[in-house]
Amino acid sequence: DESNKPILLPNESQSFERSVQLLDQIPSYDTHKIAVLYVGEGQSNSELAILSNEHGSYRYTEFLTGLGRLIELKDCQPDKVYLGGLDVCGEDGQFTYCWHDDIMQAVFHIATLMPTKDVDKHRCDKKRHLGNDFVSIVYNDSGEDFKLGTIKGQFNFVHVIVTPLDYECNLVSLQCRKDMEGLVDTSVAKIVSDRNLPFVARQMALHANMASQVHHSRSNPTDIYPSKWIARLRHIKRLRQRICEEAAYSNPSLPLVHPPSHSKAPAQTPAEPTPGYEVGQRKRLISSVEDFTE
């Protein structure tokens, strides 16, 4: 099969070098950035008060330690540790928490760990991170309901609301924008112990962030949302095809390698009803078989 044979790379090609550099910018793992907010007593309706908090309760602090690993920003190499735009020179604080497994990295933009500057009256330095995160974990210690939209931002799609209760338990629920209701189930609340709260809140936030990324990708319907490693695979396959075309153009005697095509017509299947918005969006999480067989 010609399409699977190794090909020689061009010795000097600026377009090839640019493509390789672009490939280096696509990590081999999925990345997520999640905002974390603490809401104190009497702050449920005040964005400024929430963003001005420099610490929270003892249970909130224990919750943070379970979310991930504490890292010092100045020691991080952005090409190895995903920071979601946090500055490593102290502009966004000294520490944050991050978490990773074999296929993804997540960083938490924690408002109480970011510096509260006197010259920044409206807390814009914090909002440029927190307001651009799709998902926020809100530790609501106010005793009042927290409403979506209290923290203004164009991309605040989903809130994971943590409400501490007695007996070391917590109520965990989801809020989302109306255009996200087909992807996020907000109907079920959970009672979770303090011990298990970081794991549950983190998983709910990661799932909500993946759904938000799919939702946000609708602005470019021709580019369905893939995982990062599938995006790398697609980029490599496009690069291979372009090299083959350039080689055939410079030397017409060489065969032009095309991806294999299936001449056999697909079997006719009964027509199915058109899937609704929710089903269609969830299918976009699934990769096409052509990603692996071309």
Rank of each mutant, 00 (worst) to 15 (best):
D1K: 09
D1C: 10
K5G: 14
I7A: 07
I7Y: 10
I7V: 11
I7S: 07
L8I: 09
P10T: 12
P10S: 12
N11M: 11
E17F: 07
S19M: 15
L22S: 10
Q25D: 14
I26A: 05
I26F: 07
T31N: 04
I34V: 03
Y38P: 00
G40S: 03
Q43E: 02
Q43S: 02
Q43N: 02
S44I: 07
S46G: 02
L48E: 13
A49M: 05
I50F: 03
L51T: 03
N53I: 01
G56I: 01
S57I: 01
S57F: 01
E62G: 04
E62R: 10
T65C: 13
T65N: 15
L67P: 00
G68C: 05
E72F: 08
C76T: 08
Q77T: 13
V81E: 14
V81D: 14
G85W: 02
D87I: 01
V88C: 10
G90N: 11
E91F: 10
Q94F: 13
Q94H: 07
Y97C: 07
M104T: 14
A106C: 14
A106V: 13
V107G: 02
I110N: 02
A111Y: 07
M114W: 03
P115A: 05
D120H: 11
K121S: 13
K121G: 15
K121Q: 14
C124Q: 15
K126R: 05
R128D: 10
H129R: 09
L130M: 09
N132W: 04
F134A: 02
V135R: 01
S136W: 14
S136K: 04
I137W: 00
F146N: 01
F146E: 00
K147W: 05
L148A: 15
T150S: 05
G153W: 09
G153N: 09
G153A: 10
Q154F: 13
F155M: 13
F155R: 14
F157G: 04
F157S: 10
F157I: 05
V160R: 01
V162I: 13
Y167P: 02
L171T: 03
L171G: 02
L171E: 05
S173W: 04
C176I: 05
K178T: 13
E181W: 04
E181Q: 07
D185N: 06
T186C: 11
V188I: 09
V188D: 09
K190A: 15
N196W: 04
L197P: 00
L197F: 00
F199M: 04
F199G: 03
V200K: 00
A205Y: 01
L206A: 01
H207Y: 08
A208R: 00
N209K: 01
S212D: 00
Q213I: 11
H215Q: 09
H216M: 08
H216D: 04
S217Y: 11
S219Q: 13
Y225G: 13
W229K: 07
R232Y: 09
L233I: 04
L233N: 12
R238S: 15
R240S: 14
I243P: 10
E245M: 11
E245L: 10
A248R: 07
L256P: 15
V257Y: 10
H258P: 13
S261A: 11
A265N: 09
A271E: 12
E272A: 12
P273H: 10
T274V: 12
V279E: 14
Q281A: 14
Q281K: 07
K283N: 13
R284A: 11
L285Q: 11
S288I: 06
V289F: 08
V289P: 15
F292S: 15
